[in-house]
Design a protein around this nucleic acid. Structure first.
Lengths: 237, 237
DNA sequence: TCAAAAGTGTTAACTGTACACCCATGT
DNA sequence: ACATGGGTGTACAGTTAACACTTTTGA
């Protein structure tokens, strides 16, 4: 697997970064992708920088592709974090040191950054996380069992989750968190994992159908000793 | 009235700006503050730049204070506009030329900017708009009769309005768009101006009271030949 | 025929809408 | 007393919640 080269100085807009909260769903658990830097025990959201003449949204799409191999993802910007003291220069210095990179040459990475945050909804099954040049792991973590994250990344995750919970109906339909066809039970599991509360099965079913965003397909015979559930897909428009 | 000096080079983070959509309410009309640059017929949202070590939110508060004289305003970030082609370098060049400023010295203002957009809700009555060094007017315009705006500022206004319309109940209560005490009619006028639709008086009243965000005060005797309305204020928490 | 899980019917509670009605006020 | 605008009562419709019931499936 090819590792991404570290970007050169001056290629990017200084002091501007993006971070992405990439949500996946394992069947019962809501998860996000977290990177660990080489030999540092420092965990962070996958992020990146914006090239001088690159559209911001394109930069994020590019970054996401580099880390997950996935293209054509539902991405939504939700907040820009701009506190002057969100940086932890010591942490970044140790990341550079542990990667044999001189702090002089990469001093721009130690400076203050304003970060535009995005969230993505992707299918957990499809992703083979690819660590980049700086990191030695890029892994799924349960949303309620995250490692300690660097800087204000914990806050970013919380705000992403809060945003996701609002108008979940529209958002889940646009993303790719579920496979193309899924049962009503799958959908309910996703809702429950995201909202963090149990829902009534019958009420849930009727509410989903009343939204008129689901298309009903053939039944799925699971081999289980019970009525086979219908498969559904989102009506894309 | 003191005009603001033009900021020096290198004081600010390059390629990063903010724009603010400042909403005011005149009694029946929703308005926003628009600046016109000297001798250019170019209209823009009031905006500014972020200093190297300044918190983003502070930068916006500072910019707003410079232009409206108002402090302690309800400000909310709603989107970051990052298309690479949102700039119109020709327009900025002509602004500089018409102000006797050399494009060489201020070339950083011609470059690509990513802009973090905020909206504010303020009391129209309280504001004496103060044009800054670059502009010769800073005026209220009805939301449905804006002059043609530079760059993507029209889009920014539309997105601000869309954001404001969502969860208006919470937002109006936090802002200062209405005076400290107001009648139910005032409140309804504000809602109608923002949402752009007429509302039923009786239904509106009951809905507002059920939100439990209003405190009822003494009645207001207007001199009109009719029952005096109660005054209300928002319960701040 | 039984247990498990899916799907549907039914009713009661709640919420929102529309409109009627009553109340206070200055002329 | 009456016209004007503010406040409340009420009835109806639409939506949601809770639970009972039926259906399908494999053992």
């Amino acid at each position: 697997m090819q590792k991404m080269p570290l970007p050169a100085v001056n290629e990017h807009i200084p002091h501007l970064a993006f971070d992405s909260v990439i949500f996946g769903f394992s069947g019962t658990q809501l998860k996000i992708l977290i990177m660990e830097y080489h030999n540092t025990n420092i965990f962070a959201l996958p992020g990146g920088f914006v090239k001088k003449e690159e559209h911001l949204n394109d930069a994020v799409r590019r970054g996401l592709k580099e880390r997950t191999g996935l293209d054509n993802i539902y991405l939504e910007q939700f907040y820009t974090f701009g506190d002057a003291d969100r940086q932890k220069p010591e942490a970044m210095r140790s990341i550079l040191a542990n990667n044999g990179l001189s702090p002089e040459k990469y001093s721009w990475m130690l400076e203050r950054f304003i970060s535009v945050a995005y969230y993505a909804l992707i299918n957990y099954q499809d992703v083979v996380p690819q660590p980049d040049a700086l990191s030695d792991s890029c892994q799924w973590y349960n949303i309620d069992a995250l490692p300690p994250l660097m800087m204000d990344h914990q806050l970013i995750v919380e705000k992403a989750l809060e945003t996701l919970r609002n108008n979940l109906d529209r958002k889940l339909a646009k993303g790719n968190m579920l496979p193309p066809k899924f049962t009503m039970k799958d959908l309910q599991n996703a809702y429950e994992a995201i909202l963090g509360t149990p829902l009534l099965r019958t009420t849930f079913q009727r509410r989903m159908l009343s939204l008129e965003i689901l298309e009903r397909h053939e039944k799925q015979y699971s081999g289980g000793a019970h009525k086979a559930p219908f498969l559904y897909s989102f009506i894309k428009n």
